[in-house]
């Protein structure tokens, strides 16, 4: 009986894929995806990728791994496969409602303009920050009307992808105190 191996899991866009890899010889594996099993032989392995025989066909797969993502180029196409830890899928509670968190950078770049200050009232959609990268400007607006609780960046500052920029507080009148 083949040894029991935990499947590899990868996320591609919204879809999660499970790959079962069972070694059956020095360079031979049985690979199962969605109930289909194929015999895969590794013909050559280099820093750039793998030369594989799958069924009766050979192919060159170019590979690169960067920050938890496997980039695969094979059969004339390219895929970004994010490695997912084995075990049952867990939903991350921190991503429950993106509209409630701070306004974050949608791309890495430079803060070109900061158009609001802490304490200022803003309307939904009002532009808060302008980011610039590669001669392209991107305007970030308020997700809802409220008050600017905190401005975390200044003009000219470099920001990373998803870095918090501005925090908006919902108007107090929506809470119970507002009625007193």
């Amino acid at each position: 009986m083949a040894p029991v191996t935990a499947p590899f899991r990868f996320r591609h866009g919204e879809t999660e894929h499970e790959v079962l890899l069972v070694p059956v010889g020095n360079d031979d594996y049985e690979v199962t995806v969605l109930g289909r099993t194929e015999r895969v032989r590794v013909l050559r392995s280099t820093e750039a990728g793998l030369h594989l025989a799958v069924g009766g066909r050979t192919l060159e797969a170019r590979l690169a791994v960067a920050s938890g993502t496997v980039h695969v180029h094979a059969l004339g196409c390219q895929w970004e496969l994010e490695r997912v830890a084995s075990g049952p899928a867990v939903r991350r509670s921190s991503e429950a409602d993106p509209a409630d968190g701070p306004v974050r950078a949608v791309m890495p770049g430079t803060v070109a303009r900061v158009l609001v200050a802490a304490g200022e009232r803003v309307e939904a959609g009002q532009v808060l920050v302008v980011l610039e990268a590669m001669k392209m400007e991107h305007r970030l607006g308020a997700p809802f009307a409220g008050e600017v609780a905190r401005v975390a960046v200044r003009e000219g500052q470099q920001v990373a992808m998803r870095e918090p920029l501005v925090e908006i507080r919902r108007p107090a009148s929506e809470g119970p105190q507002g009625r007193a």
């Binding site: 590899f8 990868f10 591609h12 879809t15 894929h17 790959v19 890899l21 594996y29 690979v31 995806v33 289909r36 194929e38 895969v40 590794v42 392995s45 990728g49 793998l50 594989l52 799958v54 192919l59 797969a61 590979l63 791994v65 496997v70 695969v72 094979a74 059969l75 196409c77 895929w79 496969l81 490695r83």
Partner: peptide, 21 residues
């Protein structure tokens, strides 16, 4: 985007890459 899901060949290569490192 092209929208196609990765075939067995691509997933096998990715799994082998993860196994090796």
């Amino acid at each position: 985007g092209p929208g196609g899901e990765p075939p067995l060949e691509a997933l096998a290569a990715a799994a082998l890459a993860c196994r090796a490192r």
